[in-house]
Design a protein around this nucleic acid. Structure first.
Lengths: 252, 252
DNA sequence: CGCGGTGTTGAGACCTGTCAAGACGTGTGG
DNA sequence: CCACACGTCTTGACAGGTCTCAACACCGCG
């Protein structure tokens, strides 16, 4: 995987999609972030209910918020990729109701809550901006809820690909219609709520229809229009225009 | 339904479960809330993507965040009852990716965003507190995602009852193991992602097992312990202890 | 009195899960 | 270099949970 020039770049790209960040503010944020740290796959970054004193920024790799049921089946509740804070909500909650796990080898930086506290005192607009970002996390969560409640396997998986494509594009991690997808089919199943076997068969359908290609952990979207149609994908919930109403729809 | 002395009471009860609210702060909050307004069932309070200038506090009744799929099937993404702000997230997002609908006759009050803004400037601790509350909303959302992904119909429904019981208890809306449940079986289905027919059959199972009773819009929990067991219910995600780690579990 | 919404029941179809086995690739140790 | 273990992907047969369609009872209300 090609190393971007600036590991922190993705985060500021994302922030700036949704609002203005001055150079001074960017410096202030950089000032409270630790040096990058490499994390092996499968490592638990935050355990359910442990006391938190820092939040984690993903610089590279895929990280999931997970819960397990009594039979040990895991559900990935939300995914985080380069540029996302995996647990900014931990800043106010101080302990989480779920685990945070590296699903692939990852690179992270951390920020102490005491430093975030000070950052927000000096830059109140940033507090609002990060509140906004936890609300976008929640919007993504809602869409996953909706997917699990109303969409069949094929649409669910198509939706998943559409969403991750856009989110990775925001982070500068997309190259001409394709991105690195470091999850096994079993992990994909944990994300969209299907068994490994059914993931396999659903992938075959999408491949046979010529919508996507998945080779060596790289997913290529071959027919974006049709994929979105199968998914009934509507990116409104990603708030790519920030707090303003989506101009495409505000007219009605 | 018996009218509580103070319609706004439920909100402050909830706030105080998770943190301290001084008398001055309470007065400041009351100062920005409109007079109560009655809303008929089925009325849309906020439409997807419309520009928002105020947030809605539920004083009585059940309100849902909903999305519809292309075939018109509705999914209720989250429920709000007395004491909840239905769209405090709208304060930062300014437009929503879902609708907000009164599922039963309801009473609401509203607060202008400009007034909330001023409130937070004068009482920065309240900004943190409401950020916390939108993060609890997200935690509830996560649990619904988990339910839809991993739990079968019976456990899902049992979980739903356990959650609403606790949340309504917080709002002072529970009388000895029972609460007013103003939803039809069809609406229940929209909440837990099942068809009306299957809701009906699942309810019969819970009834036959002697776990709950549902008569005339009133749900009574007959065997809380067993219901929780069937549900695999763990209330950690409701953050009933506020930001501190749950003492029951912090020991490991 | 009739009507629409709600709750209930039955029969059958379909989607997804379960269980089991084999193919393939990769890394490790002998 | 080979043997082997292990994870991952794939396939088949079957089971089971949930949905669909249809019908009917009940009730409140106009």
């Amino acid at each position: 995987m090609p190393q971007p020039r600036d590991l922190f770049d993705a985060h500021f790209r994302k922030l700036r999609v949704r609002g203005k960040v001055s150079a001074a503010q960017e410096q202030a944020i950089r000032g409270i972030l630790s040096d990058p740290r490499h994390i092996p796959a499968q490592k638990t970054l935050v355990r359910e209910n442990e006391q938190l004193s820092e939040s984690i920024l993903i610089l590279d790799g895929w990280v999931g918020r997970t819960k397990d049921d009594s039979k040990g089946n895991r559900q990935v509740l939300e995914l985080h990729v380069a540029g996302d804070f995996a647990d900014m909500h931990g800043f106010t909650l101080k302990h989480l109701d779920h685990n945070v796990i590296a699903l692939s080898p990852s690179i992270i930086a951390t920020a102490l809550h005491t430093n975030i506290e000070r950052l927000f005192q000096q830059h109140p607009e940033l507090a609002r901006m990060y509140w906004f970002s936890t609300n976008v996390d929640a919007a993504i969560q809602r869409e996953w809820t909706f997917s699990l409640g109303r969409r069949a396997a094929e649409a669910r998986m198509a939706n998943f690909f559409c969403e991750m494509f856009l989110r990775l594009d925001l982070a500068g991690r997309v190259e001409s219609e394709s991105f690195h997808l470091p999850l096994s089919q079993a992990q994909l199943g944990e994300c969209v709520g299907l068994t490994t076997v059914h993931i396999n068969r659903t992938l075959q359908i999408l491949r046979r229809k010529g919508l996507v290609q998945l080779e060596g952990k790289r997913l290529t979207i071959l027919n974006a229009r049709e994929l979105r149609k199968v998914a009934e994908f509507d990116p409104t919930y990603l708030y790519l225009n920030g707090p303003q109403p989506d101009p495409k729809r505000s007219g009605n």
